[in-house]
Design a protein around this nucleic acid. Structure first.
Lengths: 98, 98
DNA sequence: TTAATACATTGACACTTATCTATGTCTAGG
DNA sequence: CCTAGACATAGATAAGTGTCAATGTATTAA
């Protein structure tokens, strides 16, 4: 199974904006709706919507409707994918330092 | 110690390009000189120089002169920093799924 | 059906990015 | 002191990004 660097780059791009990496970290505490996230930032609602779309398209964040609200949470598979990349690199680096 | 999201975003931005994430992964096998890296890509030398500067500025890659050559390697501290971010998030997500 | 609320989409804009060609800088050998 | 090789910098440019105001869409409640 060869690595899909395009997908890795897409995930990194999703987290390459300070607002988005903050949102991603917020979601580690559990599911949040858009209006709750919006309270923490000085951006407009359309801008947040734009950022959430990028996070969801990357596969790192999952969304679902709950009535009028959109609930966002971390998509474990997406997180595991990049964790595996860095863990693998870390192992190889660590080995060479022994 | 609060998280420096700006630095995280900078690291992610450094890896948000497919060429750069490939280079970073290549470096997990050990130090490489620019001319060796260049062989693996269809880009010009100035473009590679541009990418290496971004990787170095992010703190993820270390560079040193060796005579005429520039040798690049992964900067362990930079890698550990983002590994800690994802590990921390992974732990919180894992806990909530127990 | 109407209104209110939450979110998405569109269009515009300034700014950033990835790439190239051309040129500059630094190091080692002769 | 030249020259050649390896890398960096500058300038140009097409494409992409983050932001907003304005508007559209979908859901719930009355």
């Amino acid at each position: 199974m060869s690595k899909n660097y395009g997908e890795y780059a897409l995930c990194m791009k999703a987290l390459s904006d300070e607002t988005r990496v903050r949102i991603f970290d917020m979601l580690s505490d559990g599911e949040l709706c858009a209006c709750k996230i919006l309270e923490d930032f000085n951006i407009t609602q359309p801008t947040l919507s734009y950022h959430m779309k990028i996070l969801c398209d990357s596969g790192l964040v999952h969304s679902r409707r709950d009535g009028v609200w959109m609930k966002y949470s971390i998509h474990k598979d997406g997180l595991d994918s990049i964790k595996n990349l860095f863990d693998g690199i870390g192992l190889k680096i660590g080995e060479s330092n022994k």
